[in-house]
């Protein structure tokens, strides 16, 4: 475990906690894309199938449970909670995320580290995670005004994968045979998707103005 990866995990954990905090305290999910949250729940469910078969470390197991639990509870809140679901603007959150799932599944069947169920599911979860933020970014473009917590949530989510890229570079140079092209390319694509959001986020933060994304 190197510092980059630990920072990445903490940033990721913090992004999910920020979101849960927002939904739980103000009982609102305005500006949050349910589609992105559902995609993340699928990402974790398919990524952590080895939860009970491969024991890596207590940290690893606990973090997997926290990610699974938080992503499923966010989906539950947005779908079932009587107050929260009212603040979900479903006519704005229209990205057809099903169109993301099938191509990722086909790609995982074609490109994977080993053609076994676990490995294909693992590759699928990486491809899906790379594009899972798209419905959220589209929703932000549409609703234009971004409240602080949503902006922080997306920013932290982008930062987590950026730390992971530093982690992969570090491990490449310090560990023999550490090569995971599937992870690296998916992670890079994922971070690039945040590119323009980061630009506008820093821009608004520097000029201390409200974050506005261009139409």
């Amino acid at each position: 475990m190197n510092m980059f990866r630990f920072l990445g995990d903490m940033t990721h954990l913090f992004s999910v906690l920020v979101l849960l905090l927002k939904i739980h305290t103000i009982k609102s999910c305005a500006g949050i894309s349910l589609k992105t949250q559902e995609l993340y729940a699928i990402v974790f469910a398919t990524r952590y199938l080895d939860l009970f078969t491969d024991y890596i470390s207590l940290y690893n197991t606990v973090m997997k449970l926290v990610y699974l639990g938080s992503s499923l509870s966010i989906v539950w809140y947005m779908r079932r909670h009587k107050l929260v679901r009212r603040s979900y603007d479903k006519d704005q959150d229209t990205f057809r995320h099903h169109f993301l799932i099938l191509p990722c599944l086909i790609l995982a069947l074609l490109i994977n580290e080993k053609f076994t169920f676990m490995e294909v599911m693992w590759a699928f979860s990486l491809y899906l995670e790379a594009v899972a933020i798209l419905p959220q970014l589209v929703l932000l473009q549409r609703t234009r005004n971004i409240d602080n917590l949503t902006g922080q949530y997306v920013f932290l989510l982008g930062a987590y994968r950026s730390f992971y890229i530093l982690n992969w570079i570090y491990r490449y140079f310090t560990e023999v045979h550490y090569v995971h092209w599937i992870t690296w390319i998916s992670g890079l694509v994922q971070t690039l998707l945040y590119g323009d959001f980061f630009y506008y986020y820093f821009h608004s933060w520097k000029n201390n103005e409200k974050l506005q994304l261009p139409a």
Partner: peptide, 10 residues
């Protein structure tokens, strides 16, 4: 090798 496929990252 086996550790190649063991996924130790989250």
């Amino acid at each position: 090798t086996d550790d190649q496929t063991t996924k130790d990252e989250l």
